[in-house]
Design a protein around this nucleic acid. Structure first.
Lengths: 130, 130
DNA sequence: CTACTTGCAAAGACTTTGCAGGACG
DNA sequence: CGTCCTGCAAAGTCTTTGCAAGTAG
């Protein structure tokens, strides 16, 4: 269980509810609307405005990370220790995570070559799963 | 000069103007607003609606490619033969392109391992340029 | 001529924000 | 109790679309 206090955020009911959603979900990548609907199902609804505010705070605090895989909307996931990349099925939207040391190592070399002080990266493979 | 006809599009004035903007620009990654303003400067203004329609047609025809580097807006660039990746300076927004064979090769291996029929990929490095 | 395109303004989707009331420490 | 948080609804972006007029072949 991630800590709100460590993240510098007061422990409030809405924030705990949203954090719970992330930790309870089998699906790891959630849009604001996914969160909204999950809260409805749990009979603990929150306003969309609050959800947007909370995920933005969580992201600034480093609790979660946002991705813009599709132009339409952002999805969020809990920050994991390993830094993994993503494969996306174009047809179904299914997301699979993977981690690859060769990629990790090579990206650092490339950044160095170009004089880039690397902060983050994004590596996404799009295609169709068999 | 890319061909509108080959792309299956009638050669109209607005479409030629927009294609010219892409080919004339030192900056390769343009937002709809960049295009809009460049056309204003050229004294050949077009409506934003038309620009959105045209870039969407161009993208479907494979003439240009869209990127969503920032959550705010999409940018477009002419499709090049080489398939390159991007580095982005977080502070300035500067974009640098690169191509790396190790990455290209490794991505194919990873896709194969996971049973993904690879269609496209995106590899972006974020950081600060020295 | 006939079909496809364009401009304009309205509509849409997603996200942010102001304000008054409510919860936290 | 003062401060930070929430709900609600309004406002903001960026993008898409309907319709009537214009252009291409």
């Amino acid at each position: 269980m991630k800590s709100l206090k460590k993240a510098g955020l007061i422990k409030t009911q809405p924030r705990m509810l949203i954090l719970d959603i992330f930790e309870a979900q089998e699906k790891k990548h959630l849009s604001t609307n996914d969160i909204y609907m999950a809260l409805q199902r749990n009979k603990t609804p929150l306003s969309l405005g609050t959800i947007y505010r909370v995920v933005n705070q969580f992201e600034k605090s480093g609790l979660i990370q946002s991705h813009h895989f599709s132009p339409d909307n952002a999805v969020y996931e809990l920050c994991a220790a390993d830094n993994h990349d993503h494969m996306i099925d174009i047809r179904t939207g299914k997301i699979v995570e993977f981690h690859d040391e060769i990629i990790e190592k090579r990206q650092k070399e490339i950044a160095e070559e170009y004089g880039l002080d690397l902060v983050d990266h994004k590596f996404i493979l799009y295609g169709y799963f068999n």
